[in-house]
Design a protein around this nucleic acid. Structure first.
Lengths: 234, 234
DNA sequence: CGGACGCTTGATAAAGTTCAAAGAGAGTGG
DNA sequence: CCACTCTCTTTGAACTTTATCAAGCGTCCG
């Protein structure tokens, strides 16, 4: 029996101590008076690709997808963000990707200009940003390998393991997937149908259960990790 | 007739004014006495994944592939580096990826510790590094879309356009591809055979010529770009 | 000249996509 | 509260793209 993935329910008030935490939140706390709290409905655009990158965002609650839209309807979701995740760092003048609400979302938007002023002469902050960007690169590279070389089953298993590791939405062995199948498909470079079949395949082998479409119960975490493959891919 | 891609032959001595240039080279010039020039044969490992990230590298000449090796022989090449490109920035203690020589390569290795000392209190340098990392993220995201949603032909066309834009190895409309088909395949998430067939398909439509396996002549750059698709993918 | 290696092309197979249809769930209005 | 509708999910069947297997070719180098 694996228990390493057991996690308590995350209280709203704890959301800033959550996943993918770098030391940036303490810096943001210093300009919290400039932060504006915004709410978005499901599928609402938080910031569009091409738009002037005027703000930096932190996700307070909910799930955000960050995606690239090709001209002809083809789409790729680069990442899902959850409570505590930061987005919009980096020095691009315009956003390269679009951020949309997967579920009802609350974000805090900090004017970039204030953040940059905070960074001037603040070496520790710049180091933290570099660290954040480095981690983003490492994540992207792991995903490149997934898209380049893993089978549909392996991608699905890897995705579930990643969600287990980083999501605040784990209750025991139950994993909440707030995003629809289409989003998972566009994240893993598959179609909706293949995502369904990959889940069905894992279900048939008693690795997971799928009580409903937004919930997955992990029955055999070891098997799931084994299917996902090399640890460096997670 | 398109001429925008015409470029002079790059002289060895000009290689530091080449592709993907950020403002980092001037900073490196200040610690050039600490730089060690190293030569590598084809397929020699310059730095392996997992190895302590003790140095930062700049490519003086030749072509380097940066790759991720899955346990079972599956491989993905995240990027190809050419003269002037810098590699090893970011704050990871170990390299996440392996760098190998595609062709005979000359690199300059700077001890990371010296570089970091240079960065202490040097805000401009840190800003440059952030900029470099941001660009690396943007590149990775474009490649995620390629792997996720483009067909073999589209990937090949995109690859050729990218190489045209960034390579120093363009002589008129002739493009030198120093890497073997296997490397291209592992970069594009395809097999060797599919790379061959994609090239053959472009050749049959008179978009390119392939005088020999390391040389491609671009006959119709406009068509190539059209096949590659949305500009944001390049 | 011979052998090794990399490239190309062909035939077959497999994985995943597309098309189609049916079922499940959530929200809405009567 | 129920019926209705809309959206999302699931499964099946046919098809397409790409991978795999196999053979032949060219070229580079000893």
């Amino acid at each position: 029996m694996h228990t390493a993935y057991l996690r308590p329910v995350a209280d709203e008030e704890f959301s800033h101590s959550e996943t993918r935490q770098d030391g940036l939140s303490e810096h943001l706390a210093r300009i919290k008076d400039h932060g504006v709290r915004l709410r978005f409905h499901r599928n609402q655009v938080i910031a569009a690709a091409g738009e002037a990158a005027a703000h930096i965002y932190t996700v307070a609650s909910g799930c955000v997808r960050v995606s690239h839209h090709g001209g002809d309807g083809r789409r790729h979701i680069a990442d899902f963000l959850f409570g505590g995740d930061i987005w919009g760092l980096g020095d691009a003048q315009q956003f390269a990707l679009t951020a949309e609400a997967v579920s009802p979302v609350t974000v805090t938007a900090y004017p970039r200009i204030v953040f940059e002023r905070l960074g001037e002469g603040n070496n520790r902050l710049k180091t933290e940003i570099m660290s954040h960007l480095s981690e983003a690169i490492a994540r992207a590279h792991r995903h490149l390998f997934l898209l380049s070389r893993l089978t549909a089953r392996e991608r699905m298993a890897t995705f579930l393991v990643r969600m287990m590791q980083q999501s605040q939405l784990v209750y025991g062995a139950r994993l909440d997937l707030p995003m629809p199948r289409r989003d998972i498909a566009d994240h893993l470079g598959l179609t909706i149908e293949t995502v369904c079949r990959a889940l069905a395949s894992l279900r048939e082998e008693a690795v997971i259960e799928v009580p409903n479409s937004h919930l997955v119960t992990i029955l055999d975490y070891g098997a799931l990790r084994a299917i996902a493959g090399h640890p460096s891919q997670l």
